[in-house]
Write a protein that binds this DNA or RNA. Structure first.
Length: 430
DNA sequence: AAGTCGAGCAACCGCAGGTAG
DNA sequence: ACTACCTGCGGTTGCTCGACT
């Protein structure tokens, strides 16, 4: 136990990652998955420790990262989740597909905290500052990691609002927020909608716009809403309790191939009751969870790598006291109109091609994945498993969906520029 | 133009839990 | 049961860059 052994090694690079390093890591993981992180630097030819590689991948290179400004809905959700979960950033991030715990943590510390204080709300207790002062400085939400459910303040109703509404509904339907089944080895935060980072750069390349502002709290919804949801209405974002539910389905990164891992932990009964869904009686689950089960038109990374999720999965404290229920099992309970999704996915993938996405998409990513499709599965299975799954079709669809709101905004955060420069360099070398 | 300050963000550090041998 | 290794998490640091003086 204790410090990672690699930390003792000398001559390892630290600090910011260069585009070349990013490219090496990206190429390696795209082709082989990460497997054992400690072996990644060596295999990828990097002078970094495995821990650093993992962090870089999770926080920056991972294909499903959303990036960009947080929407107001996301900020609200973070506040509400924080009221329940405290500083459990990973669990909060699990409810925000495409967002990392680090990103959320930074947003909280730099932005949301300040906003709450300005509104007279104690960011620790989520109670009015005056009341918090009267009760003393001790916050009701502990940051001690091993405290289990003790740091949860379910009675906190100040900023809880929508979440309490959701919880009351979900409790009745045996669901919980951080839902994952250890046996399924699918931790939500490791299984998010997969969108390639190239999407960001392609957007820059095609639109060439530059954001006049870097404000993360602009309220601009870069990735919301899901304009053509999965066969049901997403119009419930009215600002009341229903907005919580609508948020779950405003993930426009959604696609059929990733549905098993993307789907937020909402039970069918909750959906049907709160959203008026008519659930189909039988929905065969498309694709599979392993490389070997890759379908003809899409490739899956293995999302069942026990090593990548066992720790989180088992440690994920169910602070709400609900019965654990696997996301997969929920999905297998026939929540979605699968056929429609597949059709829409294909349509959007096609449209994505028309939008020159293939220039990048059909570069390294596509070549790699197509090659992997055609190669013997055993080439990789015996060596490494990736932590997540994604499909190229999903990428196309997601990108296409993301184009619309971004183009409408005519602006993107300046942060993309750095990414653009890096990726331009990277892809020029491919 | 130069200096200062603060916000935002990427990355590091240290610890804890899980797991295989 | 013990140990070593690996992964993941949360707190913290330090760098970058824009705003301001």
């Amino acid at each position: 136990m204790g410090r990672h052994s690699c930390c003792y090694k000398q001559k390892l690079r630290k600090g910011l990652w260069s585009p070349e390093e990013d490219e090496k890591l990206m190429n390696h993981i795209t082709k082989h998955g990460h497997g054992c992180w400690s072996s990644v630097p060596k295999l990828a030819g990097l002078q970094r420790c495995g821990k650093s590689c993992r962090l870089r991948w999770i926080n920056y290179l991972r294909p499903d990262l959303k990036r960009g400004a947080f929407s107001q809905e996301e900020e609200d959700l973070i506040v509400e989740l924080h009221a329940v979960l405290g500083n459990r950033w990973s669990q909060i991030a699990a409810q925000l597909p495409g967002r990392t715990d680090n990103e959320i943590k930074n947003l909280w510390n730099s932005c949301i905290k300040k906003k709450l204080r300005q509104k007279g709300i104690d960011p620790n207790t989520h109670k009015p500052l005056a009341e918090a002062d009267r009760n003393g400085a001790a916050p009701t939400i502990s940051t001690e990691r091993t405290s289990g459910s003790s740091d949860v303040n379910p009675s906190s109703t100040g900023a809880l609002g929508n979440l309490s509404h959701l919880l009351s509904e979900t409790a009745q339907s045996s669901m919980l927020l951080p839902v994952y089944d250890k046996n399924q080895s699918e931790a939500p935060h490791l299984a998010r909608p997969k969108v390639p980072p190239k999407e960001l750069f392609l957007d820059q390349l095609t639109t060439g716009h530059k954001s006049p502002s870097t404000c993360r709290s602009s309220g601009q919804t870069l990735y919301f809403p899901f304009q053509q949801p999965l066969g049901y209405s997403s119009e419930s974002g009215s600002g009341d309790g229903a907005s919580m539910n609508s948020l779950w389905f405003n993930q426009n990164d959604f696609n059929c191939s990733t549905i098993s891992t993307v789907m937020p932990p909402v039970s069918p009964s909750a959906l049907s009751t709160s959203m008026g869904l008519n659930l189909p009686p039988d929905n065969p689950r498309h694709g599979g969870t392993g490389i070997g089960s890759a379908s003809v038109d899409s490739f899956y990374w293995d999302g069942t790598n026990p090593s990548s999720s066992s720790s989180t999965g088992s440690r994920g404290s169910n602070s709400l006291g609900f019965e654990p229920q696997s996301t997969s099992s929920i999905l297998e309970n026939s929540v979605f109109p699968w056929t429609d999704i597949a059709q829409e996915k294909d349509t959007r993938a096609h449209l994505g091609e028309e939008l020159k996405w293939p220039d990048l998409l059909h570069g390294t990513f596509a070549e790699t994945t197509i090659a992997m499709q055609n190669q013997s599965q055993s080439l990789y299975d015996d060596v490494i498993k990736a932590e997540s799954q994604f499909s190229m079709d999903g990428m196309c669809a997601s990108w296409y969906q993301n184009q619309q709101p971004q183009q409408q905004l005519q602006a993107a955060p300046d942060m993309y520029d750095k990414d653009l420069q890096r990726m331009q360099v990277s892809f020029e070398n491919i």
